[in-house]
Amino acid sequence: MNAVGGAKPARFRRARVLIVGCGDVGLRVVRRLAGRVRLLALTSTPARAPMLRAHGVTPLAGNLDEPASLRRLAGLAARVLHLAPPPADEAQRRDDPRSRALAQALARRTPPRVLVYGSTSGVYGDCGGAWVEETRPPRPQTPRAWRRLHAEQTWRLWGRRTGARVTVLRIPGIYAPDRAGGLRERLLRGTPALRPQDDVVTNHIHADDLARACLRALWLGRAQRVLHIVDDAACPSGEALDRVADLLGLPRPPRITREQAADQLPAPTLSFMRESRRLRNDRMKRELRLRLRYPTVMEGWAQAAASWSRTSHSE
């Protein structure tokens, strides 16, 4: 068929990418893809539609908790980036019905050729500060981590059944100076850190580097592959907080014992203080050919610190 006045031949059509869970990281991916592909995003919040359109994204109404609303997603995109979390802690459930519903919907017609799923490094549980490679067997220790592992298994099995290339990204703590929450807000609140003898080793990734990794995985990721998306600087949690505090000119966090933490800190914060591991990122660098822009937390905060300093001096 002639492309003029009719449908364009396949070779002239822009690739379609569907983003499920288009929050902070998803929008960072959008900014890198805008104008290069046709972008679609699932949203259960109608009020977000104008914002998505302003970013060049076609919003698709649907809710992962309502499987019938997902039927229209079948056959829409050749590549899918799935960043939506499982449900919150409902009766300590260990499965992810959202991933299961989405997998069923996407398989109704020609399934995507590629799906990238954003998981968590929490699936490993506590590793006692040991170095961890992607081949280490998962040992989830919380219902949240079990739900993520179930989602991983759902997608890898789905990939084998459909022939789609599924890549699982295991992601640690995400940060960025322009991202809500995180280290700076924790320092401003004066949230305590564990004393050195009780501390755990934590891992981080800058949100912009994570977005770049997601983008590369959509085109370069290998089938049924797990990758750690993490920077080069695994270190004790309190040490990372001290370094950022010094850089930003904020007070270092007070140090407390593990017993005191159990009395003073909320359960979600405590859960991160019970697990210690050092993630290797060799596979990420080799297979995604990703060169980190922020190899350490210090580099991730340095530019923002300089900008805030210039702003304060100009006022």
Results as ranks from 00 to 15, higher is better:
259 E>G: 00
198 D>V: 04
186 R>F: 07
214 C>F: 10
236 P>D: 00
223 A>C: 03
214 C>V: 08
198 D>F: 03
267 A>G: 07
188 L>A: 12
267 A>I: 08
248 L>R: 11
184 R>T: 12
261 A>Y: 15
210 L>R: 08
182 G>W: 12
302 A>K: 10
249 G>Q: 13
304 A>R: 01
256 I>V: 15
272 F>L: 08
264 Q>H: 11
184 R>E: 15
264 Q>K: 14
303 Q>R: 09
192 P>L: 03
310 R>W: 01
203 N>M: 02
306 A>T: 11
283 R>G: 01
303 Q>T: 15
301 W>C: 02
243 R>G: 14
305 A>K: 08
239 E>Y: 10
274 R>E: 13
278 R>G: 00
208 D>A: 13
304 A>L: 06
242 D>I: 06
242 D>L: 04
257 T>E: 02
261 A>V: 15
224 Q>F: 00
172 P>A: 09
265 L>R: 03
287 E>T: 08
218 L>S: 05
289 R>Y: 01
281 N>C: 05
215 L>M: 08
215 L>F: 01
182 G>M: 07
178 D>A: 13
179 R>I: 10
235 C>N: 08
310 R>G: 03
271 S>K: 06
222 R>K: 15
257 T>I: 00
268 P>K: 08
306 A>D: 10
218 L>E: 03
247 L>Y: 13
192 P>C: 03
252 R>W: 09
209 D>T: 04
287 E>Y: 12
225 R>S: 12
251 P>K: 05
